[in-house]
Computed example of a mutant assay.
Amino acid sequence: MIAYSEVRAFTATPGQGNRAGVVLDAAALTDAEMQALATYLDAPETVFVIRMGDGRVRVRYFTPTCEVAFCGHATVALGLMLAQAGYWAGEALELETLSGRVPLRLISDAGVPVQVWMRQHRHESRLLPTTLRSRLADALGISDRMVHRGLPLAAASSGQWSAFVPLLDAVILDGLDPDLPAIEQLSEELDVESVYAYAPMGVNRFAARDFAPRVGIPEDPVTGSAGGALMGLLAHHGRLPVRSGRAAGMVYQGHAVGSPGEVEVEVEVDGTQVVAIHVGGCAVLEREGRWQR
């Protein structure tokens, strides 16, 4: 029997945010068993701890259909479970993932874990051809006149690649009618894991929806890795206010699927270059169980 936890990340409220499976002792599981358990839990991602020691934790992430290199919300969920299980009291801790090492930071209040922050991977981006604007809009179920011309239409990554499509406002975002096969086709052509639509709500606040049928997730409720990549993209293009080499922002996601959450992001910049991206959020344990191998 394999013990697992189901955790809601980027929220402090059970039933909201993004659900992640967490398995703290997966050393004996085969690849096929990890995939089977992730399919059984049917969370957008499940994170498996393969080894702990020397301030490092080796992990792997699986969606219900495949393995992925990194997942932000599952990382926040894992941080909470490591703290609650007594494996982590806030000292330096680094995750070893398939896409590189991810340092974690724990924020506690009177000894109670409150937030988990991660330093994400090196930020990369590339502008997408404006000729794709109509196809992306059609795939989202809107007119290309609803695509924002003043914000970057681009692919970006701070751990996994997404195509970022800016919309004029959050009302348009809420009314999207995605064509998932078309989004999957575009994702394959662009070699990204998801199509991430976003809209401004303020100077440094954005609403978002993330569609990832290519990796078996029709719509991800709250996406930490893409939220970090978005803020890095905006900072790189001068669309975020910067003070003393830092920009901060918030992404609101999940409202359209009845599971709202909040992703906090801090970006370190040097001119237009993104030096580092830090993503943080709350998490709450929802339930625990055991799985028969």
Rank of each mutant, 00 (worst) to 15 (best):
A182S: 11
V112T: 15
T272N: 08
R60W: 12
R126S: 02
V195F: 00
T46F: 15
G249D: 05
S134N: 15
S259E: 11
S143T: 12
R205C: 14
G289P: 11
R205N: 07
P260V: 06
I183W: 03
A38E: 11
S143R: 14
V47N: 02
V269C: 07
L190K: 00
E124A: 07
R51V: 05
F48S: 15
L29H: 04
A163S: 07
R246I: 14
D174G: 04
R122K: 10
E124C: 09
A248V: 14
M146P: 03
A154E: 00
P129M: 01
G15V: 05
V242Q: 07
R58T: 09
R239L: 01
T30C: 12
V7P: 08
Q115L: 10
V171I: 12
V215Q: 02
Y252G: 02
E33I: 08
V68T: 06
Q292L: 13
R290H: 11
Q16F: 02
F48L: 13
S194Q: 06
V222S: 12
E188T: 10
Q120D: 13
A212P: 08
P103E: 12
A235L: 02
Y61T: 02
A156V: 00
T130F: 05
G238Y: 04
G261T: 02
S157K: 00
M34I: 09
I107P: 08
W88E: 01
A182D: 03
A85E: 11
H73R: 00
G224V: 02
A12L: 09
V116C: 10
P200I: 04
E264Q: 15
R214Q: 01
H73D: 04
